[in-house]
Amino acid sequence: MKYKLTLESKEVLNVKATKVILFRIEATKEFTLLNGTVVKVGEKGGWIEGQHNLSQEGTCWVDEESMVMDTASVSGDAILIESNLYDQAKVLEKAQVEKSDIKGTSVIRERARVKGSIVSGNSGLFFSTEVYDCEFTNVHVGELLFNIRGYFKNSVIVSGLPTRILNHCHCEDSLIHSGRITISAPANFKNVTVSLSKKFLIFQKTKLINCSMFKRDSTFKTKRHASEETIIEGESKDDVITIDGDEILLANSTLSGHVSVQGDWEIHNSKLMDYSSLMTSPGKHIMDDVVMKDFSYIRDTTFDGTKTVSNLELSGDTIVDLNHLQFWNVTV
């Protein structure tokens, strides 16, 4: 045994507002934690209901400011620092959790790092994922790809793996950096900064509101543009940012550089600049209060569908090539 339960106890409420009794732990042998901290014999740790909450195997540990209750558990070489585990949550292997609450059936494992966050529902963080200042509900990061499901806000997510946004994801007030991002289910992005090194693809129903999206090299950049508008920037004609899907809505937006919007789109009060392009598909396309300049263009790839353009302003070497087009108030 590496620890024992002491007689020091306290009564707390779990997430279901049920009273539980927790006991402080005390080390019975010396061992070194994953982060290099040495736990000495007699050193007090955190609070648990029973030995089912903290494994006697490995170097896992719960520091003096942490609590584990219900059937939640810490095992392997995992570390809990100033954090709380509730319900059936698990932190295992070489994961580290600091200043966070983990609830529901959430699992934090492998070399995942969580700091200053709330993780709940059926969430899972795997591999070497790092998340800071997040609120996750039913979010999965890891597996074969870096997958995000459910709801998250106030988050910073960094991954070198391709990122897929799945299952009606809602992302708010967050920053995501990944090599490639694909939204393959309806998603809402609000006040989100996306920095990526390869491609950004959107499929199905997607809404972008007050977002900043950057195509950059592999260097992680946190540069932010004005928060009043959605900004999508492309950098290279060989690696275009592509937004492709059904019912794409861009409002108060700026598209510049090598950005291509395809599929069914609706664009209001926005600007197209510097080689950005709109491609049509069978379906409905609407533009209102749009400025086009600096080699931007709209190109028809089909004779089907309805195209409605109102209050369009053109300048520079722009191209508008649309069939079955209805124009109102075009300024050249």
Rank of each mutant, 00 (worst) to 15 (best):
A187P: 01
E26Y: 05
L22F: 00
S218L: 14
C60P: 03
L196R: 06
E43F: 01
M67K: 07
H170A: 06
T71P: 01
A185G: 07
S315A: 15
M213D: 01
D289F: 15
S218K: 15
L34K: 12
F152L: 15
V68G: 02
K293G: 08
K115R: 11
E247N: 12
R216H: 14
L175P: 00
G305L: 12
E8G: 03
G50T: 13
L272A: 08
L22Q: 00
E110Q: 14
K29E: 15
E229S: 07
F146M: 11
L92M: 11
T163M: 15
V332M: 08
F31R: 04
S315F: 11
I25H: 00
R113C: 11
D300W: 02
E143K: 14
E26F: 04
S178K: 00
S310C: 06
D294S: 15
K199L: 15
L272H: 05
V20A: 01
A226N: 12
H140V: 13
K19E: 00
R111P: 01
G121Q: 05
I231H: 06
L13E: 04
G104E: 01
L34W: 02
G305F: 12
F23P: 03
T301C: 07
V131R: 08
R180N: 12
I108Y: 07
C211G: 10
R109I: 05
L5M: 05
S106G: 10
T32I: 08
T302A: 08
G257W: 10
G36E: 10
I118K: 11
S277L: 06
V91T: 10
S281M: 05
L175G: 00
R113I: 14
I48L: 03
E110L: 11
V41C: 00
K16H: 13
G150N: 02
E93Y: 07
G42T: 04
D173K: 13
D133T: 13
K215Q: 13
R149D: 10
T301L: 14
S197R: 08
N210I: 00
G46F: 05
S253W: 04
E43I: 01
L13I: 00
I241N: 09
Y275H: 15
V107W: 01
V330Y: 14
D217A: 04
K94D: 11
V39N: 08
R149H: 12
W47H: 07
I79K: 00
S155M: 06
H268E: 08
D246R: 13
I25R: 02
Y151N: 11
Y275F: 15
K40G: 02
I21M: 08
V39H: 07
S256N: 10
T18W: 09
F126L: 10
V91P: 06
L278E: 02
E172Y: 11
L272W: 04
K19Y: 00
V192N: 04
L85G: 05
